[in-house]
Design a protein around this nucleic acid. Structure first.
Lengths: 334, 334
DNA sequence: AGCCTTTGCGCAAAGGGTTGCGCAAAGCAC
DNA sequence: GTGCTTTGCGCAACCCTTTGCGCAAAGGCT
């Protein structure tokens, strides 16, 4: 920058102002500076700005890479909205591990990001949240909403949409519906479970506790949970899987056991994905508006970046129920 | 840092040296400094170091978020290996768009990353590559290998593994095999196509050019390509899809047309994924060793970071063929 | 012509850390 | 006790950019 200033015959401050448009510069001078920059192949290093100004036009996103395919659309939603606002986005993988998450976030903070979107991992309150409290960085939580937290949050209507699907199964005549629940540390798991309970309440049905099994939010967990359900004295006639990973496990276990969906067992799940439609039968799922969640999160973040004192807001977006054949309520067609 | 130095009764330079272990510090002094850091809750900002020293223990990864699910394992492979080496990883989404890719990479460079792993988008040579040439940042290319480039690269054996699968279909008696090819700007597409051709050559079969259709590497492209194949005067008896997105389109089109796999049409594809095993029939696929590719890429990067002059290396990792039922060579079983 | 307001720009400090150079104290051999 | 080598640390310049303050020239007004 000094070189550019020298070559253009102006001071470095003028060069800086030309670059950022932070104050009036006579057109002639501006021209000269720009020519000098071009001539010298000057590369602006916005990062140095963060030293003095503390702003580098970058926001961060922290989530677990494993939560595929939710991932992709969410990232695209966030990235798109950030680009629209003239912000760059950098992403880190939390591995859904509080320890790794906190170091990854700390690294982003060291890089002076101006805002953060985070899908917190289980246990983040002890390690990552304190970091955020120390630093004055605005942040928005996505996916895993924590009602006790005074923070901006965006997520999906877990409870209502799960209840709607379970309700649908109940109206189709099912009385024993298995629930393969996600890892209990996650608010999403709890909310979906509440939805399951709620639907039963509305129908005045008592839930056999044995029907609720822990799927640990993983494929393998889903498989085991399903085996447990099948071994019950009176197995369920329908199963609901709490997320897409568990869906894999559940379906695998059912296939291995020679149980056919929906003839022998009705099935529905949280999380839609490209393949859900291709299965035979097509899978009835709850589709999250991932891209919209991402976009809203960035909007919330932008608001907070301009107004630190704005009241925290929690947004719940409605999910869409993708009604296909696996729930067994319609005759299987092509 | 000044505060810490003051509180510990030493100079800032000593504090710096304690933090980085860059020169001998008497144990007693070191103790004092560390206590002071703890006491004041000092947060080291490695980013500031990059101003003077140009090192901040962070490497970057640039790829398209859409290339799911390849993504997840690749990211995990890279992240894991980076962590092992004591490096932080930040990721950016290129959107498979050269323009977006170049600004995203430029942003990472501005953040003074010490190395870059990149799965280049089509057209990156004009926008992103020049950036890399200007900056002295070591980089490694993954997935899309460019044979003409003198750079470190890691990818999968596209040609040989595709040839093996096509060969398998040929030995099963198929003489007209449709090839749903990926976007032509990608080296992976070209290599897989070469594998397709190679297998035919080995079997002394002439390829009807109409059997090779463009699937544009997308689901929708795969669908259209499949329709084109079905409308041929003599349709193929088997189809090979060049990646997982196109697989969705192909399978969707076949299902919509009421064509059953593998009875009416054999099927195989590049890219394995969790659901492939759950389909009925299970899908025969080529599984990339994504995690290994990521890990190797980081290893190559580390080598280059220490030795800028090392000869560029291109590594091809073998793929694994997941032999299931969709290729029709075995009786469909449970 | 004298004074006030713009307009345009330079000066220098600041932000957080690294590092070459040099100095002082300590250890050692004689 | 003298002179030489280590060992341990401080000083200050430097990395790159931003920005408050202040000055000078130009233009408008009376």
């Amino acid at each position: 920058m000094t070189e550019v200033a020298h070559s253009a015959g102006v001071s470095v401050s003028t060069v800086s102002h030309v670059i950022n448009g932070t104050r009036l510069v006579a057109p002639a001078t501006r021209e000269k500076v720009q020519r000098a920059m071009l001539l010298l192949g000057y590369q602006h290093r916005p990062i140095a700005r963060s030293l003095s100004a503390g702003s580098n036009q970058t926001i961060g996103l922290a989530l677990t890479a494993a939560s595929n395919p939710y991932w992709v659309e969410l990232v695209q939603g966030i990235d798109g909205e950030a680009t629209r606002a003239g912000l760059n986005l950098i992403i880190v993988d939390t591995r859904d591990d509080a320890r790794h998450e906190s170091t990854a976030v700390a690294n982003m903070l060291a890089h002076h990001i101006e805002g953060l979107v985070i899908a917190p991992s289980d246990g983040w309150r002890d390690l990552t949240l304190p970091l955020l409290r120390d630093h004055p960085v605005p942040y928005v939580i996505v996916d895993r909403i924590d009602p006790e937290l005074r923070a901006d949050q965006v997520g999906v209507e877990n409870e209502a949409s799960t209840a709607a699907v379970i309700d649908h199964l109940i109206s189709a005549g099912h009385r024993r519906i298995g629930m393969v629940a996600g890892i209990s540390g996650l608010s999403t798991s709890a909310e979906r479970l509440r939805g399951y309970r709620l639907a039963h309440q509305h129908a005045d049905l008592v839930i056999d506790p044995a029907l609720i099994v822990d799927g640990a939010s993983t494929s393998e967990g889903g498989r085991r949970a399903t085996l447990a359900l099948l071994e019950l004295p009176v197995p369920p006639t329908a199963v609901f899987a709490g997320n897409n990973d568990m869906t894999i496990g559940v379906l695998g276990a059912l296939k291995a056991a020679g149980i056919r969906v929906p003839r022998d067992m009705a099935f529905a799940a949280f999380d839609d994905f490209a393949w859900a439609d291709l299965f035979s039968p097509g899978l009835t799922t709850v589709a999250q508006p991932s891209a919209a969640i991402g976009a809203r999160a960035v909007q919330l973040l932008l608001r907070r970046m301009t107004d630190r004192e704005a009241p925290p807001q929690t947004i719940r977006l409605p999910a869409e129920i993708m009604h296909r054949e696996s729930c067994g309520c319609t005759p299987v067609s092509v």
